[in-house]
Design a protein around this nucleic acid. Structure first.
Lengths: 338, 338
DNA sequence: ACAGACCGTGTTATCGATAACATAAACGGA
DNA sequence: TCCGTTTATGTTATCGATAACACGGTCTGT
């Protein structure tokens, strides 16, 4: 299985095919002038030798790595997975691969990760969120490549931005609830500021409630972000016991909202009759659950697609100034709040 | 933002620090003999210049890439995410990074991906599943690096294996059902063989039913794998209409099982009183949903951890023969089937 | 006090692909 | 027919880090 002889190089392929290494190099690229016959001979020679192109050597010489670095908080998250899908579909036609890393919702981990990723000399880098350590910020600023911050609207963007205001999105939901006469509203979220988008949503909740002159103190901390279904359920239990007159609860994500819903089901509390529940993210579960969950769709796929097209524009010289693409989240009122 | 002057190299750092490039190189590695004072001077010089290590050059010269390639069917899947976590935790102490690619449950896409990944000269490669195109198989066999196939027990392993029999796992569930007197059992799965683990589960269902002398024809095709909650719900609707006397349904995953459960809820059909539902994977939703779902825990984290430790053993020369690590999935009987 | 081991650092050559330049042959329009 | 252009290919030097080897200085044990 493990071959002991050295792996073949382009020179070996060239020798077998009876051409120069340069011609082999050309044969492996598109849009380069090599006759079909030669290309075929080379392909066969490569296949026969079991030659596999060496990107390290190629990158070093050409100073192009052909990949785009991406950081996301967690791989196990349908929203970020969609963003990634939008990104990779937008980039793959150009032969750009994605080099992925996840931060575990920790900006220090993000700093380490960004440095690791930059060592591979990506053509561009897409990061989730707009809050970074000072060093991470410096690294991104000095990288000399397009930087796209997503899922957020940073106060001082590093480069390009594709995002939305998490706070404003939650405010829209509260405005809707208040207009329907529901005012005793609680918020279930994480107990730390690791998840900056979660923090923005909580702060958006507080600000919006205060703007309406309402009590913004019904805040339930459900644990370290990201909040799981289980933690959402536990938090709902505490809410029902400590503040039983709560009329509606907004959860930091659909997963915790679903957990909260199940806790109501276990306790025989009717949703939406006794209490309204809403989430964030428009995960599949929000549409499928019974009752379906009111939520906010942040168009994660579009975020990725927009970031990809921004990157291509910059790389092709069609865009030189830092741009901000504003995503407009959509409020989806479902059975859990009516 | 985008600096125009060329990025600094080790030579620049060396000049500023007043040492040779080789010493800078050593200072960037652990376990190399450089005095603390020199190391510090170099670190400061690097920081001042904004130097970022170039892995392409390093890999080319040292012939070591310091990463392990991993293919998974989908990034948006809690099971594979856990396997990935087990892998990266096992590998990170050794400074091995993960280079990830996803196949979209398509072995042709897997072939392309494997070639792309091998171009980066990984130290080892971990693939999900044991079914590959002939070319992919050849690429893996000739790669000259440890190969680990996971989540499966291939008939003809390429190298190492960390997995279990999907068919046998389903059989265990059926045995349990039959022992409890439930015999009219249906299976909800995908309508194509893209997802080979899903196919194995379906075939395991058929074989086990036949072994019990039972009708194995209650097969509902829910769409192209992977099956979503929505598709699980739709399939359940069709099952309830076409075969209303079904006593239990096994779904290819917990997500489709949950979808099936919600369809019952929408139709006012009591679970488990009127029909039992079971899934596969022990996703969080299976534990949290009301009723909680009977399922099978395949210990995804352990799969990743075992693959990681196998790789380290091979790289350190502690293991030379291809090994198979057998994972023993656990049947979890919950409210949805009792 | 001295041989041998060890430590910290420098010098030189090299990993494998390809940018830049060069060239021979084929082509095409006046 | 001839020259400018295009097409297909070759030659040389190079990307940036580091393996291999070398070497002077310090330490250790007898």
């Amino acid at each position: 299985m493990t071959s002991l002889r050295k792996a073949p190089t382009m020179a070996d392929v060239a020798r077998l095919a009876g051409v120069s290494p340069m011609t082999v190099s050309r044969a492996f690229k598109r849009d380069t002038s090599v006759s079909e016959a030669t290309r075929d001979t080379i392909r066969k020679a490569a296949e026969e030798l079991g030659y596999v192109f060496d990107s390290a050597a190629s990158s070093l010489r050409s100073q192009r790595s052909d990949f785009v670095a991406v950081t996301i908080p967690s791989i196990n998250n349908a929203n970020f997975a969609e963003t990634l899908r939008g990104l990779s579909e937008g980039l793959k036609d150009r032969g750009l691969q994605i080099l992925l890393g996840y931060t575990d919702y920790d900006i220090h981990e993000e700093e380490r990760l960004i440095e690791q990723l930059l060592r591979r000399r990506p053509e561009a880098i897409v990061v989730t969120g707009g809050k970074h350590t000072p060093r991470a910020r410096r690294l991104l600023e000095n990288a000399g490549i397009p930087v796209v911050e997503t899922w957020d609207l940073p106060d001082a963007p590093i480069g390009h931005v594709v995002g939305f205001s998490n706070a404003a999105a939650v405010r829209g939901m509260i405005d809707h609830f208040v207009a329907r006469g529901v005012t005793r509203i609680a918020f279930i979220g994480g107990d730390a500021d690791r998840d900056t988008r979660g923090t923005d949503r909580r702060e958006g909740f507080v600000a919006a409630m205060q703007a309406h002159g309402l009590d913004a103190s019904r805040l339930i901390a459900a644990g370290a972000p990201p909040i799981s279904m289980r933690e959402g359920a536990a938090a709902m239990g505490r809410l029902l016991e400590s503040l039983p007159d709560t009329e509606a609860v907004i959860c930091v994500s659909d997963l915790s909202a679903f957990g909260a819903l199940t806790e109501c089901q276990r306790r025989g509390i009717a949703v939406p009759e006794a209490i309204w529940i809403a989430g964030f993210g428009d995960y599949e579960i929000a549409e499928v659950s019974v009752p379906a969950l009111t939520t906010i769709n942040p168009f994660p796929r579009e975020i990725g697609a927009a970031a990809a097209s921004l990157i291509l524009d910059v790389l092709d010289g069609r865009q030189s100034q830092p741009a901000t693409v504003l995503i407009r989240p959509e409020l989806l009122i479902r059975q859990s709040s009516r």
